[in-house]
Each structure stands twice: as structure tokens, then as C-alpha cells.
Design a binder for these strands. Structure first.
Length: 920
RNA sequence: GCAGGAAUGGUGGAAUGGUAGACACGGGGGACUUAAAAUCCCCUGGCCUUUACCGGCUGUGUGGGUUCGAGUCCCACUUCCUGUACCA
């Protein structure tokens, strides 16, 4: 009987569903294992063949762990809030929920066909009120928390209030937006409103006026990780900097813990490095410069304290609050004009035109070490959001300062011996200091490293500043001026935000008549009727960003239907952290930072037991498209085969890859493809029209999208699963190439054919050869799965089958073992075998076989091995050599001569057969 | 600029420091067939030698090094990918 994949796969998928095979329950008696996929955003385009790559890998791992006896939690859900559904709603008027649910339905369908072992009873979707209730809940808890730097953890705001009423800010070491100081008396004299305003400075979820990334096209603000190279990640629209009042999360409070936590988790070094760079810890000093003729002190941050003698001017960010305070009346107009010009530029423009620009404020500061007066400028090369938004400029040793100094003709003083600064700055942190002697401090002759340390010490002693650690990581902007997201559980009294009570959650997303902003520029929720509480206090009109719902979803899977908690204590303590998380690298600075932050916060609250959510993380590579081209001769309807195209003047045209097999074009289908090709003529080679190809992003416009449904229908889910793994290393990006799929499909057909010949009723023990083949296979596959080297496992299956076929094996025991080891990879065919072998239940509970070394004959030593001071090696001699001649022959071997290096062998061991062991 | 990773046949890719190119695709040849598809068998890095068998040389981006032995380890370089960037 032929291998009928459609029939087999349907049968076992139904069986799994009808018998709740993948339903998981907490069982303290069993060891747990939690395997998680990054849940998908259900887009309208459906899954293409690249999406399931990581899911297949995690499914293999889950099934493998389950066969090893673990209680495996392997859930899935949907990241259901997001822009595409909303944009579709704006165009069509269809509620995004309808669109989203349709897409989810389709995704579910596609996923089921691939035979994943998900426990769908635990599925979550972020737009479900029962789910986002807990997103809102976490937000409230963040609002009610502040970060105590001394204790290194979040604490309730009530405790902060208590502290302020007794001590003011004296001795308080808290994460805060700005340095504030007040006395207990001042605090106690404040009104309720004033106190709430003051507390905003400390809350972990806070509302503040900050510089934000505004995307006009998307009509919303974006977090830093949603902007790249000055444009929005989604859509690629320009982004400008704007000051707006927004909700933010104080992620920066956790910067050090986010950094430290990386040490104890099993992630790839490159991903950790990306996060380290994103967090951007730098150690330096904060220093105060006096402004001449003004009480003001300019506070700056530098990592090069050693270069203070070379400071010849200072620069403020255009948005810095210092600008208004120092600018002289005569320069005010010029400064205002400059600020205005800068604010109109998009981030992208600002980055692309690297032209030096800036304006003098008219004010001077005093270099604290030299006493000299130095001018203060404003320029957009200084960023408002980093450090203090003000810098000391050292043109000799910083390339940006150098360019600025050249442009404005400011002095450049080299501070390092031998540094030639006539053409460019000397940025390296190495060398011996010169020109660095002042009334109180002399750095001359010190190395840069020593000078930095010495200067830091000095400024601390003199009260000029302090040692300071700065992080690049900024607080996450948490408001979006959009409709399709979680509503904030916030109402306003006299413009002061208050949180809803937890009993009032979820606050449901209201209906609106249009998904566009209101006429007076309010977000879409401004259109909602009765969008206020029972006392008429208005609710917040912004919604939460995409990462809100994805930050703690892995916790909800542990206890998805709990009405009283995000996750119950027992369930959390059973499942704890995710043991294996598989997903794309693109979330390195977004979701994977936010989730860790969120988890650490919940850990501080005592809600979760682990302070790192994902123990091991594997990034699957991206699957790119493989496009095909035909070459049209210019101005004709004639197409030239790829091998001949250079002889003509041609233009490549993307051709739908479904019209191409192994790069050969189906010319008839091509003529039918589009009306203007109906009359196409072909210049062929060897009777075939060969297409060109290129690796590109998989997209509709390139006609290179491969839908997994088509593959499943034609070859089967097991073939798809094996082939996706066979394509190459999991973590590597690679193009999808349907060309090779026949090989894998052929293997499954052969496996099927072999199994048909197996003597199912026989009870003969496996032969020595069979045992060796099977144990070699088990050893290989077990090792491969542990190392996520699934591609070589597929090859191992093929080799093992080839060996069994060669030895004409029909042994039942071999079939039994084969079924068990291939089950994670090709579960449908394995399930079929499992039942034919007479077993009950599902193959997912078939015990994973252990290999036994004794069946694996050791390879003989062929190269010199040192052991106990003796060197031993093996030489091969022809098998028919007479016994007494063996050693003589071995010694004559040129390699043996080389290895012995003129020494006489101490011992020659003749092993039966043709191998000689020589010990020197 | 900085950080991380990669470079092996026509293609995707294998190789605890130990016979480079497993496995698969593609290609070539053959069997079966009226024919095609499917299936099965053989060959397939390059160069040289040979009637044939046999055999030799060369070969993992480039140049050095360590080692009895290097695709693998070390140093320098080239190219490509990915991420990130006026972060002081």
C-alpha cells in the first residue's frame, strides 16, 4: 500500500484532538518542562513557509522531552492587538476584532495541519478581556510602585509616601525622572494634587512630558525599539522628535539588573551582546561647570574625565532646559531660530546630513581645572535624552567635537603625547598625558587610564562632580494614540490620573464610530460615548502599545483560566520559568527586554518565583524567499533562457515560482499566467527554459511566497517538518528552496515501504548489525536534539534506513526503535507505525530509547595517542598478511617511521585482523 | 565607527584537532516500460596518469604560525551577513 499522507495525517490529527492527547495538567509528581514559541501576530496574509520553522523545532523538542517522561507545557496563543488590523479597519470600517478573529481562525487551521502538539485549551489572545485584564492589572501595580535603588527592588508607593512624610527626600535613593529634593515639612504641607504630582517622579508607570518619537503617518508615538534609522520599523515612515505628555514605564530603573541577569541565562552570545549594547552601561563622571556671570552650574556627563584640560567649549542639546537659562539676550533670536529649524527635521534627516550645525548662546562657562572661560554652544549633535543633554567638548580627542571646532574655528588642544590632531581627532583611550597641568591637578605623564581615575578622585574631593554610571536604555513610552490596543485603567480628576480599582477590571475597549482621530486631534477613543466613570471622570484616550500584551503572556499560559490572578502561586511554582524559548532575533531590544523587565517587576512584587523568564533562548534564522526570473528581450515578447541571456539585451522579470520546477519554466503555464504573456516566445537551451534565481525577502510582490498548506497537501506535514529541519542549521538564515523537498519525501515513502515489509508478529532479536545501526541512530539523534542540530538528524534517519534496507531487515525490534526516535520529527507516520505495532495510546508517550555503547564498535586508534607517557598508534596492513610478517610490514610504513622519529618500538601488539598497535 | 557571526563542490549543507565534501538536490549513465511518470542501480570537487585496473597531485576566502596531523586552534588581512549608532 502506498504512503497516503493525507489519509494518515488526517486520521492522527483527529485522534490527537478527540482524545485531548496534548492537554497538560500540573502534576507535582512529575518533572516539568516548559517549551515556548513566540506567539504570532495573526496577519491577513496567513502563514508562509518561513513562519513554522521555529514552531517545528520547538515541537520536536517538546515531543522529545515528553517521550523522555517530562510533563511538557507547550502552549500557543496570539498577539492580537496591533496596527495592521486597525489600518484595515480604517479602510473598510470592519471592526478590527472581526478581522483579527478571522485571521486567528486561519492561523489555527494552518498550524493544525502541521501537526503541532499544542495544548490549545491554554491558548490566549491579547485582545481578550479575560487576558488584558491582567495587562491592566500589571500597569496599576507599576503605577503604585517605585524603585528603591538601595534595596535594589520595587516597593509600594505607600511606603514612599510614608518615608517622604518623615524624612523628605533626605537619604532617599530612588529611580526618578529628575533630581528632586524636598523636606518632610514641605511634603507634609503639600496638597493632595501637589503630592501626586511629586510622586509621578518616582512611579514605575508614570505620566511625563518627555521627548518622544512621533510618527505622523501612523498617528502615534513609538518606543525606541520601534524606530530604526530614523523611520518606523513598521511601515518605514519618518519619525520626528516631539515633546509630549505620555505614559512611560521606568524600565531604566532595572538597567543594571537587566544587565546582570544576562550572566545567568543560556542565550546566544550575540543576542546578549545586543541587549548589553542596548542597555549601554557606561562608567564616567558627572561634572559641574560654572556659568560665568550666572549662579547656574552646567552638569555634564563624561567618560573621559582625563580630558578636562582640553575642554575648549561646551555644547547643549537644542531641547535642553539649560538653553533658555544661559542664552544671552543678544543671541536669543539666533538660538530660537536654530531650535526651530532643528525641530522640523526628522530623525532621518538629522542622521543623514552629517553637516555640522550649531549656534553660540552668548554665554561662557569656566573650565574648573584651567579657570579659562569657554563658550557655550547649542547643537543637535548633542542628544537631549542621554546623560544630562549637555557636554564638555574636547575637540582633540572626540571626532564630533573636532568637526564642530573646525567649523566654528575653536581651539584644539592635544592632550596625549604624539597625537597628531592637525587632520583629525585622536579618539583612542591610550597614551601618555601632556598639556594637563593646572593649579591643583597635574596629569602630565600619566596614562589615560590613570588620568581618568585620578581626575575622578579629584573632582569628588573638590566637589566638582561625582562618579556616575549612565545607561543608554531609556524609559519605554507606553501610550499609543490608537484604537486597537488595551485601554488604560485610568481616569482623570482635574487632569490628575487615578487608577481604577482592581475589582473594576477589565476596563473594556469601547466601540467607536470611526477608527480615525477626532477632529480636534484626540485619539480614536475620544469618539467613544460615555468614556468616563460613573462619576463622570474621563478615562484615558490612549491605548497601550503592542509589547504590553506580550510581556507576560508566558505566565498566563501557566494558569490561563484563573479568574483571581495572572498566575496562581501553585502553578507558577510548578512551571516557574520557560525552559526553552524559540523565536526571532528581531525582538532582541523590544519584547525580550520588556518581558524581562516585566518579570523582574512581578518578581519584586512576589507574584512570580523567578526573576528571569526565559532560561534558554534559541533564535531560529529567517527563511528568505527564492525568486525566479525570466529574461525578456527588450522591446519584444521573447524570453531567453538564463544560460543564453548574455547574448541578448534583456530585462529580468519576476516569475511566479509555482510556474517553475527545479528552475525550469513551465512555458505553457507561463503563457496562461498573464494575458500579456499569452503570445510569449521562448529561446530555450537543451529544450528547456531555465530561469534565473535570487534570494530575496519572501513577499507577494516577488512572487516567491510558499504557503505551507500547499506543501502539506502535496507532500504531507511530516515531509514539511523534516524538510524545514533539513534545510540547514536552525539558527541560520537560509532561503526556502522547494527543489530539495523530493528527497525528504522519498525518504518517508521508503520508510513506509520498509515498514510494510516488517514482520510485525515476529519476535526475533535484532542482529548485531541491526543493533549497531539503531543504536548509532539513537545516539546521534539524541545528541542532535540536545544541540538543536536537527538537520543532521534527518540525514541520520536516511542513513539508518539505507542500512536496514541493505541488510534486508524486517525486524520488529528495529521498527519499534525507529518509530520511537522519528516520532518527534514525523509524528503522523510514527503514530501510524505505533498503532500497527499494536500499541495503545499515542506515540508522544512512547518512551525515548536509550542507546547502549556496547553495540557501537569503537574505532581503532590510527593516530598517535599519548597515554601514561607512552605513545601508541595503529597502522593498517593488508588483511592477508601472514601473522609473522605483520610487525615488520607495519614498521616499514612511512607514517610509522615518522611517528617513531628514530626510536625503537617498546611493544608491538598485533590485533587479530589487520591492525597493529605500536607502543613507543 | 562599534559589536556579533560567517566564508567548504553546480546548489543546500556534513565533519569531538585525525581518511574533507556525510546526507540531499541538481547533473550524467543504466535497468524496468510500447511510451511517459514513478521506482531501482551506478557515477558525480578539480587536475593529471592509464586501453583498463591501479595510481598520483591538488583542494575548505588570503597570508603566516602551533602540531606527527588544521576546514577546525592562534595572529594578521579580505569579503559578506546581522544588529546598533552623533550615547560624549
Amino acid at each position: 500500500m502506498d504512503y497516503k499522507h493525507q489519509e494518515i495525517e488526517k486520521r492522527w490529527q483527529d485522534f490527537w484532538r478527540d482524545n485531548d492527547i496534548f492537554k497538560v495538567t500540573e502534576d507535582p509528581a512529575r518533572k516539568k518542562f516548559y517549551v515556548l514559541d513566540m506567539f504570532p501576530y495573526p496577519s491577513g496574509a496567513g502563514l508562509h513557509v518561513g513562519h513554522p520553522l521555529g514552531y517545528i523545532a520547538s515541537d520536536i523538542y517538546s515531543r522529545y522531552k515528553r517521550q523522555q517522561g517530562f510533563n511538557v507545557l507547550h502552549p500557543i496563543g496570539f498577539d492580537a492587538y496591533g496596527l495592521p488590523a486597525e489600518q484595515y479597519a480604517i479602510q473598510t470600517g470592519q471592526h478590527p476584532e472581526i478581522t483579527t478573529n478571522q485571521n486567528i481562525e486561519r492561523y489555527r487551521n494552518q498550524l493544525d495541519k502541521i501537526g503541532f502538539s499544542y495544548d490549545w485549551s491554554r491558548a490566549v489572545r491579547t485582545c481578550d478581556p479575560e487576558y488584558y485584564k491582567w495587562t491592566q492589572w500589571a500597569f496599576i501595580r507599576m503605577f503604585d510602585s517605585w524603585y528603591d535603588n538601595a534595596a535594589g527592588k520595587a516597593r509600594p508607593v505607600a511606603e514612599l509616601e510614608e518615608y517622604l512624610s518623615q524624612h523628605g527626600t533626605e537619604g532617599l535613593d530612588a529611580a526618578q525622572t529628575e533630581e528632586h529634593s524636598l523636606t518632610a515639612a514641605e511634603w507634609n504641607a503639600m496638597t493632595e494634587k501637589e503630592r501626586r504630582a511629586a510622586l509621578m517622579n518616582y512611579r514605575l508607570a508614570y505620566r511625563a512630558e518627555t521627548m518622544v518619537n512621533w510618527c505622523e503617518e501612523l498617528g502615534t508615538v513609538l518606543a525606541n525599539d520601534e524606530v530604526t534609522e530614523g523611520v518606523s520599523v513598521r511601515g518605514g515612515y519618518p519619525v520626528t522628535q516631539r515633546k509630549m505628555r505620555q505614559w512611560c514605564l521606568r524600565v531604566s530603573a532595572y538597567a543594571q539588573r537587566l544587565l546582570d541577569g544576562l550572566e545567568k541565562i543560556d542565550w546566544s552570545e550575540s543576542l546578549k551582546e545586543t541587549q548589553r549594547n542596548w542597555i549601554g552601561r557606561s562608567e564616567g563622571a558627572e561634572m559641574r561647570f560654572d556659568v560665568v556671570g550666572n549662579d547656574l552650574k552646567l552638569e555634564i556627563f563624561t567618560t573621559r574625565a582625563d580630558t578636562v584640560f582640553g575642554v575648549t567649549f561646551m555644547v547643549l542639546a537644542p531641547e535642553s532646559e539649560y538653553v533658555d537659562l544661559v542664552t544671552t539676550p543678544g543671541q536669543r533670536e539666533a538660538v530660537e531660530e536654530y531650535r526651530k529649524a532643528v525641530s522640523h527635521k526628522t530623525e532621518r534627516e538629522r542622521q543623514i546630513e552629517k553637516k555640522v550645525s550649531g549656534v553660540f548662546t552668548g554665554a561662557y562657562a569656566r573650565n574648573p581645572l584651567t579657570g579659562k572661560e569657554i563658550p557655550i554652544y547649542v547643537s543637535d549633535y548633542v542628544l537631549a535624552g542621554y546623560g544630562t543633554g549637555a557636554i564638555m567638548a574636547v575637540p582633540a580627542h572626540d571626532s564630533r567635537d573636532y568637526a564642530f571646532a573646525r567649523h566654528f574655528d575653536l581651539p584644539i588642544i592635544p592632550l596625549i603625547e604624539g597625537a597628531d590632531v592637525s587632520e583629525q581627532s585622536f579618539d583612542a583611550k591610550e597614551g601618555i598625558m601632556i598639556n594637563s597641568e593646572g593649579p591643583k591637578l597635574n596629569l602630565n605623564g600619566l596614562t589615560v587610564k590613570e588620568a581618568i581615575a585620578r581626575t575622578k578622585e579629584f573632582i569628588r574631593e573638590e566637589g566638582l562632580g561625582d562618579v556616575k554610571v549612565n545607561y543608554r536604555l531609556r524609559d519605554a513610552i507606553f501610550s499609543r494614540q490608537r484604537y486597537w490596543g488595551e485601554p488604560f485603567p485610568v481616569y482623570y480628576v482635574d487632569d490628575e490620573p487615578y487608577m481604577l480599582h482592581e475589582d473594576e477590571l477589565p476596563l473594556l475597549l469601547p466601540e467607536v464610530d470611526s477608527y480615525l482621530p477626532t477632529n480636534d486631534g484626540q485619539p480614536p477613543l475620544g469618539r467613544a460615548k460615555n468614556w468616563h466613570d460613573s462619576d463622570g471622570h474621563p478615562y484615558e484616550v490612549c491605548t497601550m502599545p503592542g509589547f504590553a500584551g506580550s510581556s507576560a503572556y508566558y505566565l498566563r499560559y501557566m494558569d490561563p483560566h484563573n479568574p483571581d490572578a495572572l498566575v496562581g502561586r501553585d502553578n507558577d511554582e510548578y512551571w516557574r520559568a520557560v525552559d526553552l524559548y524559540i523565536g526571532g532575533r528581531e525582538h532582541a531590544t523590544g519584547h525580550l527586554i520588556y518581558s524581562r523587565f516585566w518579570d523582574k517587576f512581578l518578581y519584586d512584587l512576589g507574584v512570580v518565583a523567578e526573576d528571569e523568564p526565559f532560561r534558554k533562548l534559541v533564535n531560529q534564522g529567517m527563511i528568505q524567499g527564492r525568486s525566479n526570473f525570466v529574461y525578456r528581450v527588450q522591446g519584444t515578447n521573447t524570453f531567453v533562457s538564463a544560460g543564453l541571456k548574455d547574448k541578448y539585451d534583456t530585462a529580468p522579470i519576476h516569475v511566479d515560482i509555482s510556474l517553475v520546477k527545479n528552475d525550469v519554466l513551465d512555458t505553457e503555464a507561463f503563457r496562461r499566467w498573464r494575458p500579456d504573456f499569452a503570445e510569449a516566445e521562448f529561446i530555450v537551451e537543451d529544450g528547456k527554459y531555465v530561469c534565473g534565481w535570487a534570494v530575496e525577502k519572501m513577499s507577494k510582490s516577488m512572487y516567491n511566497v510558499v504557503n505551507p498548506d500547499d506543501i502539506v497537501e502535496r507532500y504531507g506535514a511530516d515531509t514539511l517538518r523534516l524538510y524545514e529541519m533539513f534545510l540547514g542549521p536552525l539558527e541560520q538564515s537560509k532561503p526556502w528552496d522547494t527543489n530539495g523537498i523530493d528527497g525528504v519525501n522519498r525518504f518517508l515513502k521508503k520508510l513506509w515501504g520498509w515498514f510494510e515489509r516488517v514482520d510485525l508478529d515476529g519476535d526475533a532479536p535484532m542482529s548485531r548489525a541491526e543493533l549497531k545501526t539503531m543504536h548509532k541512530l539513537i545516539k546521534k539523534v539524541t545528541g542532535d536534539i540536545e544541540e538543536f542540530s536537527f538537520n543532521t538528524s534527518v540525514a541520520a534517519f536516511m542513513i539508518a534506513l539505507g542500512e536496514l534496507q541493505q541488510m534486508k531487515s524486517t525486524n520488529r525490534g528495529a521498527a519499534e526503535l525507529f518509530t520511537r526516535v522519528i516520532a518527534p520529527f514525523a509524528p503522523h507516520i510514527a503514530e501510524e507505525f505505533w498503532h500497527r505495532l499494536g500499541h495503545e495510546g499515542s506515540v508522544v508517550d512512547a518512551e525515548w530509547p536509550a542507546f547502549e555503547e556496547k553495540y557501537l564498535v569503537e574505532d581503532s586508534v590510527k593516530y598517535p595517542v599519548s597515554f601514561n607517557g607512552k605513545t601508541r598508534f595503529t597502522i593498517e596492513v593488508p588483511a592477508d598478511t601472514p601473522r609473522e610478517k605483520v610487525s615488520e610490514l607495519a614498521m616499514a610504513d612511512p607514517q610509522a617511521e615518522k611517528w617513531m622519529a628514530g626510536k625503537t618500538p617498546k611493544k608491538v601488539i598485533v590485533v587479530p585482523g589487520k591492525i597493529v598497535n605500536i607502543v613507543i
